[in-house]
Design a protein around this nucleic acid. Sequence first.
DNA 1: CCCTGTGAAATATTTCACAGCA
DNA 2: TGCTGTGAAATATTTCACAGGG
Lengths: 210, 210
Amino acid sequence: MRRPPQISISRLAVYLRFLEDYIKEKGPQATINSEALAKFLDINPHQIRKDLSYFGKFGERGVGYRVKELIDTISRILGLQRPWNLCLCGLGNLGSALLAYNGFRQMHLTIVAIFDNDPEKIGTKIRGVAVSSPRQIPGLVKKLNITIAIIAVPQAVAQGIADALLRAGVRAILNFAPVKLTMPPHVKLRNADFSAELVHLTHYLSSASQ
Amino acid sequence: MRRPPQISISRLAVYLRFLEDYIKEKGPQATINSEALAKFLDINPHQIRKDLSYFGKFGERGVGYRVKELIDTISRILGLQRPWNLCLCGLGNLGSALLAYNGFRQMHLTIVAIFDNDPEKIGTKIRGVAVSSPRQIPGLVKKLNITIAIIAVPQAVAQGIADALLRAGVRAILNFAPVKLTMPPHVKLRNADFSAELVHLTHYLSSASQ
DNA sequence: CCCTGTGAAATATTTCACAGCA
DNA sequence: TGCTGTGAAATATTTCACAGGG
């Protein structure tokens, strides 16, 4: 059994979300086999079994997987069995969208601090979360035990915010700003890049039509 | 020379964005070699040369790449040398964030229609773009020659919107709703999934600390 | 000599086929 | 029999090493 590829982590997240919907519909005793799950998600059943096998044996031969157990297992694999405190940097449209996004809560991910430069926003509470100046990053990251940060600020200030987060001791960053950030290797950095996604579509459409 | 992997398209988008910033700083005569570019983007220089070589020969031995030319070349590869009309489905926080996102304009991607169910919004113009009822999808997609759609509606209605877009003749969809959409193979579908990104961070943090 | 472009090697990932247990 | 778990095969992708043109 080898080390799981990065991409299998993304797939586990997809399985998890589907299974959470599925158990709501089918009830807590539901089981599912890899073939049925594969069909729903339009993926190869071998892939699913392989992804899970990197982490252990969770199914029953002749039966499939007990959905309740599988949800717990995948949650544990993904580190979602415990709560995480996040901060959101940047409360523009994107930051507001992320704050409103419900997907986080059910994953035990809680935004406990918001940092924004706008004096109008600083000192207010949005959806129950206080907005602070970025100068408060060092203090609040420690005080609120924040380990993960979301960067949703303009390109030009993203690296500066990232540096402040790094100094404050944040250990992982999800960056929505369209820049390549520089971080030491002990900080885990992921980039979410809208335009890179769109470009797949334009490339596909223009190469398909030639 | 083999078929380029999907992921090299994402990397080309990253190269392109960097080069656009770079030429602004260094001027229109700038050149760059694969090693320098690789260093800026924290990537392997062989990877960059290989990614480009899937599409042709764009560099000069002993010199590197002329940045201006390389920008044009990558734009052409990605299908960005021509304009594209997009529609945005869903004008919540995320939809608003996407509408405000400047990255699209410089890629010749124009949002020409917005679809939302809210009667308060229908009939208004946001950032110069009219908001219409989803019932207008068939008519407007054809009339405005929309080929690409962005779905930023709640999970529960995403498949219905996708079906309407399909019937209207849209050829590619970028889906931000956290569901697996079902589409026939001739429609190119990409998913942008925030929580799948975050889960990489929680998985990393919890497995690193064990 | 400098740096690209590219076959070939190394590595990573996916798919397959089937042993083995309920 | 039915389905998982997993080595092994097939593919895909990345990295390397170097030929070759300016």
